[in-house]
Amino acid sequence: MSVLARNNVRVSGRGTTPLVFAHGYGCDQNMWRLVAPAFEDRYKIVLFDHVGSGQSDLSAYDPSKYSSLQGYADDILEICEELDLHHGIFVGHSVSAMIGVLAAIKEPDRFDRLILVGPSARYINDGDYVGGFSEEEIQELLAFQDANYLGWSRNMAPAIMGNPDRPELGAELTNSFCRTDPDVARQFAAVTFLSDNRDDLPRVEARTLVLQSREDVIAPLPVGDYVQRHLPDSRMVILDAAGHCPHLSAPEQTIAAMEAFLRE
């Protein structure tokens, strides 16, 4: 199984500078559908699904490898290796912001710039640190996952996953995007919401943009602010958008902020 098939990598665009988009927990590369096309003219667009999400190869899921974000970061570096990407731009949403941070630390040559959409270095409050959630709330979230998985395992069974050639089948599915294997989703949620990457931030060399929603229950302003302050070469743009997915709810603003940063 090649890396490109494993992660369902899609490459497009007419430029040469790589622009790699990484989706967050709970979804897949479709999340970038309102943003990525705006960069097709000038960049080499790389979209992919994390293993266990979307149309990735489920059989490549190794619970021990993906028990930390580093496993996901290594996948991104393998994709870069396979496509021979250097001095690119990484765009990561939510948990993929920190996955990008880990990848950039390990192989600084891959990405000159990072764009982090709704990043959090740690979701759980810790002493003076405000992460937005108490430990109990996160445990509650992990337990709550099952309420939806029962439906999801029925509706999104891997057996009916991924039929790009038969769109009519997709229309019959309850939820045709962001298919996630229930067992993978359960572990990915735990890895995402229990991770702590605060110590990694100062080690990033790449120039970084933090894109922060005005109002985001998952990554509130103090959380984005913390990330920006601890990244050595960074700036923050606060979007006039509500919710954790400004690239879906306010794509034009998101694109404008990204373009301004890339012009610098």
Binding site: C27, M31, F144, H244, C245
Partner: peptide, 8 residues
């Protein structure tokens, strides 16, 4: 769940 899955 709303932010991560329902809304997208």
């Amino acid at each position: 769940f709303y932010e991560n899955q329902y809304f997208p």
